[in-house]
Amino acid sequence: MTRYVAGRVAQAVAVLWAAYTLTFAILYLLPSDPMELQLAAAGIQPDSLTAEQVAAMKAQFGLDRSIGAQYWHHLTGLLHGDLGTSLTQRVPVTELIAQRIGPTLQLSAAAAVVSLVAGSALAYLATFFRWNPLRVALTRLPAVGASFPQFFVALFLIQFFSFQLGWFPALGNEGPSSLVMPVVTISVLASSVLAQVLVKSFDETLRQPYIVTARAKGLSRSAVHLKHAFRNAALPAMTILGVIVGVTVTSSIVVETVFTREGVGRLAQESVLAQDVPVVLAVVTLAATVFVTVNLIVDLLYPLLDPRISHLVHKGAM
């Protein structure tokens, strides 16, 4: 068991490192000049500086060193919790993210929970009802939900619930009511993805002979569905939990932009436009950390939920 956990953790760290390195490589290969960006941010014309002044500034930010040295510098900084300094705002990146992370965490967590509940409920009902038209309608619903672009869903919600009905605020991140529409926007996509996988898994599970055994005992259909089908159907679907959480994180870019929320998603969008490389790198690393952590948790939970992976839990039970 400890070997399994250690292995998984090592794997997670390796994936994280690879994601960081790849992002670093891509961002530093972009044809942008960090010096120019900084000077522009400070309102200085590049022509007005002497070659010595430019060199001094480059040295100050470590831009005179080779890519490898810079990479090493950033990586060791990262390990010490130092994500570098924003090129355009001239404040530490950790400070920027700390300011913005609250609303995004709220949004992502709420959206993940809602997606999980809604997606599971939809799949459960779609496979439980026997009246065919309803069944077909519920089974098709996730495909519809997954095919609407998020900005469209968001704009529709704003138009209808803010402008026409005035139920929820269209902008900002003040209070719980401002959270409702962004959460719904993300959940439409994430819960649809989950429901699609889960419906398929349910259909597969309900065809298994042990379902007949359970029914032949005299259990009601709802008892069979809940006690025998649900857990077995949920197991294969668990692997996409990482994807679901990933969707809620990446969706925050679109959603925070549309709803003008002050979050990390919008920070990412702004930083990309401004080519503020350290901030983009930090946000991508953060997203990768969340994704890897969720997948790690799923991996560690799996043997607890599926006794067939028993050699990990209690060795040699045969």
Binding site: Q208, V212, G218, L219
Partner: peptide, 18 residues
């Protein structure tokens, strides 16, 4: 269950694995 019990065909897949 109470009047008729069923012993299904294939024991390898006739029991809930979890």
């Amino acid at each position: 269950g109470s009047v008729v019990g069923l012993i299904p065909q294939d024991p390898m897949v006739g029991l809930n694995p979890t």
